[in-house]
Amino acid sequence: MTALLELDRITKRFGSVVVADGLSLAVGAGDIVGIVGPNGAGKTSLFGLIGGDLAPNSGEVRLEGRPVTRLDASARCRLGIGRTYQVPRPFVDMTVFENVLMAAQQGGGQRRRLSYARAAAVLERTGLGNDANVPAGRLGLLSRKRLEMARALATAPRLLLLDEVAGGLTDPEVAELVTIVTSVRDEGVAVLWIEHVLRALTASVPRLICLAGGSFIGDGAPAEVLAEPAVREVFLGTEVTTSLAGLAGEAAREDA
């Protein structure tokens, strides 16, 4: 069976900085994969390469076996790659509903009534039902994050790229968004999920990838990946060290 998304030895350089060093990866439908790594590891660039904002220097991106490396972001979106930005980028002068409607019509390829119905359903699902007619520029951070996800969902993705859903939110807020993500995954959508807040991630993903210096340095069950010496080393000195140590400790206890 062909994987939904395949990266085949993707390399991307900005001058002398290598943000992706021959990365290969396969993700199947309904998979949910967390991605962690220190700042500047190339996480967001990886999403750029998958989503089409960035063109690799070499290598190939395939969606269901079909090469999409030469397609731009809008064409890839129409083929089923949805993406959210780390810092939400709503169309501030349009209402929340218009934001989502546009995504349903363009990315989702739906017309008229169908697109209106899809937009309304997505707003309901992401908890924005009461804000439909509010200009997006007036939303607070949590609602902007919801809208970012709503817009991605409206494009009817088969692969959802989530960049830092939980950043800047409180625990209950994060929990709400995680519930939405897992329900999306349950429908067979593959999810790639970058997150700094490890608690949100480790609780919901069966597979975790650690990216550092443009290379994958860990891939597997979260506790195992976080226990690996190479992974612990790149995280040393950052604010997540303590929670990592805690998780690694738990993993060790489970192993024992």
Binding site: G52, D72, C77, R78, P90, Q106, G109, T155
Partner: peptide
């Protein structure tokens, strides 16, 4: 860019 991500060919 955000419009591209919503599937619109700018």
């Amino acid at each position: 860019e955000a419009a591209q991500l919503a599937g619109a060919d700018y």
